[in-house]
Simulated scan of single mutants.
Amino acid sequence: MARKTPAVERTLVEFGESIRSWRSIRGLPGAVVAERAGISRDTLRSIESGKGTASLAAVVAVMEALGISSSMTNAVEPLNTEIGRNRAALINRKRVRAHAIR
C-alpha cells in the first residue's frame, strides 16, 4: 500500500466527506448505495471516512451509484486542462475531444 502523506490523508478525508454529502443530497441511505454499488456497507463506510483502503473499483461503483462517475473521469481527463491540451502530442492524442473544449 502506498505511504499516506498528510496531503494524501487530507485528500482522502475530503473525498470521503464529498461522497457522504452526495449521498445525503441524493437522499440515499448507506445500505442502498452499498447495494447498488455491489459493495458491503463497511466498504462504503471506509470510503466515506477516508481510510483509503477501498479498491478503486469500489470507489467508482459508489460514484456510479450516486450518478457522479462522469465527474471523476472529466476531472482527470488531461485534455480538460490547459496544460493537457498544450501537451496533447505527448499523450498520443490525434484530436481534442469536443467535450474538452471550453
Rank of each mutant, 00 (worst) to 15 (best):
A88T: 09
W22Q: 15
A88Y: 10
E35L: 12
L28T: 03
A54S: 15
I39D: 01
R93E: 09
R23N: 07
K4Q: 14
R41S: 12
N80M: 07
I91T: 03
H99S: 14
A37P: 05
L12M: 10
M1N: 08
A65S: 14
G30E: 09
F15E: 10
I19M: 12
S49M: 08
L12S: 03
S18D: 04
L44Q: 03
V62W: 01
S18R: 15
E17A: 13
N92I: 02
R93S: 08
S55T: 13
M1Q: 11
I39W: 01
M63S: 06
V96L: 14
S46G: 12
S69H: 13
A65F: 09
R41W: 05
W22M: 15
V76N: 01
L56D: 00
W22V: 15
S24E: 13
I19Y: 05
V13G: 08
E82H: 08
S49Y: 04
E82F: 06
L12V: 03
K94I: 10
E9N: 07
R95D: 12
A98M: 06
P6D: 11
V32K: 08
R95Q: 14
R87G: 08
T53S: 09
K4E: 13
M1W: 06
L66F: 10
N80I: 00
P29V: 15
S70E: 15
R97Q: 06
G50N: 08
V62M: 02
M63G: 05
P6L: 07
E14Q: 15
I47C: 07
A57I: 05
K94D: 15
V96R: 11
R23D: 08
V32S: 04
R45E: 05
R85L: 04
I39K: 00
S46E: 07
V76C: 01
N74H: 13
E64F: 09
R36Q: 12
R3W: 12
P29Y: 11
I101M: 01
G38Q: 04
S24H: 08
A7V: 07
R36H: 08
L28G: 02
S70F: 09
E48P: 04
V60Y: 02
K4H: 14
P6G: 08
T53A: 07
R26G: 01
A58H: 00
A75G: 10
I39P: 00
L28E: 06
K4P: 09
H99G: 10
R26C: 04
T81L: 03
E77W: 06
G38K: 06
I39H: 01
V62H: 01
L66I: 10
P6E: 11
G38T: 03
P6I: 08
V59K: 01
M72Y: 15
I101E: 02
E77A: 11
G16A: 12
G84F: 00
T73V: 11
M1S: 12
R85W: 00
